[in-house]
Simulated scan of single mutants.
Amino acid sequence: MLTLDQIRAFVAVAEELHFGRAADRLRMTQPPLSRHIQKLERVIGVTLLERDNRRVVLTDAGRGFLEDARRMLSLVDTAGDRARRIASGAAGTVRLGFTAVSAISMLGALLRRLSEQLPEIDVILHERVTAGQVDGLLRGELDLGLARPPFDIDTLDSRVVFREPLCAAVPLGHPLAELGRPLAPDDFDGLPVISYNPVQSRYFHELTVRFLTNAHPRIEQQVHQILTAVLLVAAGRGVALAPASARSLGVDGIAFCDLVRGGGDPLDGEAGNGEPVELHVIWSRDSTNPALARVLELLPDLEAG
């Protein structure tokens, strides 16, 4: 069996072309050094060194093996360092789940920050709705998610990383777009509304229901994704509530209007103006991935303030 001691012995002799100097370099005597070379040649089945009392010469096979032997030793030397870096979280892999709208609000900035500060961490992206991300975390398919609440706090940890206003998406030229003021729940009375699936998109379903509690809209569709809702609005199928970052989806034929709460102020995400739309990072409490902790250190923590 090939051993590292044999490979190191061969490289030393091949580079020194002298058993005495090679033995001194390896801090050993010549007899065990010679035995390492002999065992190595028996394992490989070819002569690597021609030697007599006056000189040591590499054979053609020996010159070829020397290149590979150096690469093997280099790999061994760097493997330990890489293992230590992975154990410390400075290198490794993080599998990141995200939704389409979370990608607009945060994903690009996060990936740039990771590339700059943790270049040895590979990020593998998975686009999934929040429910799919939660399932992926629990199954061990994901390490981290950019998702919307609520979450199972018994198995998942979460942290707010982004807040933005809730707004209304309406077709261009729609009477709501012409009011020139933030919209109140009563403005939606009797209008067709694109809402969200109460299971797959529970968060935006509940935000929509809460805002329209005292209105009497007609729920036309219940969709899973913000993009789908905005596309239906552009097609004239109704109006919808969406996070402000949906403006960046670039869908033509849409106007976005501010909303009011209570005293009539726009929902700007500040205290006293109602509940903002929150984006959380979520991860499994049982995660053993060292790179995850390093990634979390780079994320903003809006709850800390």
Rank of each mutant, 00 (worst) to 15 (best):
V123M: 15
V123I: 15
I124R: 15
L125T: 04
L125R: 15
H126Q: 06
H126A: 09
E127P: 15
E127C: 10
E127T: 09
E127Y: 04
R128C: 01
G132K: 14
G132V: 06
Q133H: 11
D135H: 14
L137I: 06
L138Q: 13
R139N: 11
E141L: 14
L144E: 10
L144Q: 11
G145K: 05
L146S: 09
L146R: 10
P149Q: 05
P150K: 11
F151L: 12
D152R: 14
D152G: 07
D152F: 10
D152P: 11
I153E: 14
I153L: 15
D154A: 13
T155R: 15
D157M: 08
S158I: 05
R159D: 00
V160Y: 01
V160D: 08
V161I: 15
V161E: 05
R163Y: 02
E164T: 12
E164W: 10
E164L: 08
L166V: 10
A168E: 00
A168Q: 01
G173P: 06
H174D: 14
L176S: 03
L176V: 02
L176A: 03
L179F: 01
R181F: 07
P182Q: 01
L183M: 04
A184R: 15
A184L: 06
A184Y: 01
D186Y: 00
D186P: 01
D187Y: 06
D187H: 08
D187N: 08
F188V: 00
D189G: 08
D189H: 11
D189N: 13
D189S: 14
G190R: 03
G190Y: 04
L191H: 02
P192I: 02
P192K: 07
V193Q: 05
I194Q: 01
N197K: 04
V199G: 01
V199E: 11
V199I: 12
S201V: 02
Y203M: 03
F204P: 02
